[in-house]
Design a protein around this nucleic acid. Structure first.
Length: 436
RNA sequence: GACCCUGUCGUCUAAUUGGCCAAGGCACCCGACUUUCUAUCGGGGUAUUGCGGGUUCGAAUCCCGCCAGGGUUGCCA
């Protein structure tokens, strides 16, 4: 039975690199039928906040990375906040003391005596990485105030929580020999390691908290990404399932996942590709699901949704135009209000030709006489109106689009007219004709 | 500085593990279509596989050197 964990430190938002680390752990646990554990490493009282901890849980839940043991989930190896495990660490420190592997400094700090032998890390991703006997000073494991250091608690908890594998960022690789030294000192076998490459900015520099795409909540949840899309993109950053297409379900990704195939080169983040994935997932949504996803963005933009069925059809009609949910309001705002403004070039185009008003009037007359208001009947009415003035439908279509939406781009004109209704369609044409 | 990881189109990755002309996605460019488009359709590979040597009939792949990027070297995690 495999047991893996994601062990974030609550010092800020869930970082995209951390999210991917969690993702690989989750994939491995699900693939092997193992257990995914969430452990909060809040040993640095000065930098950890409850808000950050909650934010990380929120981000993980949004991505659908559910944990089997951890905060809110419980489990047999808790507590899952390191700040609540001091007694356990004290006991383990006593073991090291009994073995003569630690000593106390004058100020009270406790240091672990390195074995000072060569240590090789057997890594699923990086292969065997050998480290010569160290010349570094012995490692501090407990501060003078009695609190413990990351390397120590991390190892103790991996022992206590019976971790079989450790998937973590490659930034930990250089320190892993220290962890193995500790496992050995405790007389335990280290878990199998897999150090995954880091995510870099597009320019190859380290991605920090302020960079685009770094924070899960700020850059994805609030920017209109779909969890499945981000999940899919992150999976393929540093790992390839070698399938025909790249849009793959969680189930498929889980089945295909093989940690040995993870790259050991850092990858640059590509927001365009991530958005492309989002566009793919967005288009696969039902009208109802799409509306559910973008509802908060439409309302935040100040548009009131009175009719859910119409709203769902409206957002559905522009799904091919956007890649993010946040882009939808700008495409559909005229469905929710009649006092939309006309884009500048739209006004110019409306007034460009003297015959435009006549065309619109003919369309209005045609619409007025329609007994049945369907996309098909509207389409016919438009064609008839154009024909009556010896014009092509193509000359009238854009004018109607401008009149009904104030925009030069959007879904089909008959779709717009159908959704806003016969009465509103006539009113909008009238309003537009009155502009002159 | 020392140690560790890594270098294939702009970018994410392929390349039957030393064997056809280095392949695909995203991006990009060109064209077409359409009532519009950031859509759709069609076309285009844009690379001296970081650089220089070496081994070999043959190297992206193996070896050496160099360079570049990233990481670690905390009483941060």
């Amino acid at each position: 039975m495999t047991r893996v964990r994601f062990a974030p430190s609550p010092t800020g938002d869930l970082h995209v690199g951390g999210a991917r680390t969690a993702l690989f752990n989750w994939l491995f646990a699900r693939k092997t039928g193992g257990t995914f554990i969430l452990r909060v490493e809040d040993t640095d009282g000065a930098r950890n906040t409850e808000e950050a901890a909650q934010g990380i849980l929120k981000g993980l839940r949004w991505l659908g990375l559910d944990w089997d043991e951890g905060p809110d989930a419980g489990g047999d190896y808790g507590p899952y906040f390191q700040s609540q495990r001091k007694a356990i660490y004290d006991a383990y420190l006593a073991k090291l003391d009994a073995a003569g592997r630690v000593y106390t400094e004058e100020n009270g700090a406790v240091r672990f005596k390195f074995s000072r032998t060569p240590i090789t890390v057997h890594d699923l991703v990086c292969g065997d990485v050998a480290f010569a006997a160290t010349e570094e000073p012995d490692m501090t494991v407990r501060r003078p105030d009695g609190s413990y250091i990351f390397h120590f608690v991390n190892v103790v908890d991996d022992i206590e929580m019976k971790m079989t594998h450790v998937f973590r960022g490659e930034d930990h690789l250089s320190n892993t020999w220290k962890h193995i030294d500790l496992f050995n000192a405790f007389g335990t076998t280290p878990p199998t390691y897999a150090h995954i490459p880091l995510i870099l900015n597009p320019d190859g520099t380290k991605m920090s908290k302020r960079d685009e795409g770094s924070a899960v909540e700020k850059s994805y949840m609030n920017e209109g990404f779909l969890p499945d899309a981000v999940f899919n993109y992150l999976c393929l950053l540093g790992w390839t399932p070698r399938t025909e297409g790249e849009k793959l379900s969680r189930e498929a990704l889980t089945n295909l996942f093989d940690p040995a195939e993870i790259h050991n080169a850092n990858a640059r983040f590509d927001m365009d590709k991530c958005k492309w994935f989002n566009a793919q997932y967005l288009r696969a949504l039902s009208p109802e699901a799409l509306l559910a996803g973008c509802r908060r963005f439409i309302e935040a933009a100040g548009y009131e949704i009175k009719d859910d069925v119409m709203a769902a059809a409206a957002v559905f009609s522009v799904k091919e135009k956007v890649s993010l949910l946040t882009e939808i309001p700008a495409w559909v705002h005229y469905f929710f209000r009649s006092d939309y403004t006309y884009e500048n070039d739209v006004l110019l185009k409306l007034k460009a030709k003297p015959e435009n008003a006549g065309l619109l009037e003919a369309a209005a007359a045609g619409f007025l006489s329609l007994a049945e208001w369907t996309e098909a009947s509207i389409q016919l009415a438009i064609e008839d109106a154009a024909k009556s003035l010896a014009a092509k439908p193509g000359a009238l279509m854009p004018l109607l689009r401008y009149a009904l939406s104030g925009q030069s781009r959007g879904p089909g004109v008959n779709t717009i007219a159908h959704l806003i209704g016969q009465e509103s369609t006539l009113q909008r044409i009238e309003r537009t004709l009155a502009l002159n």
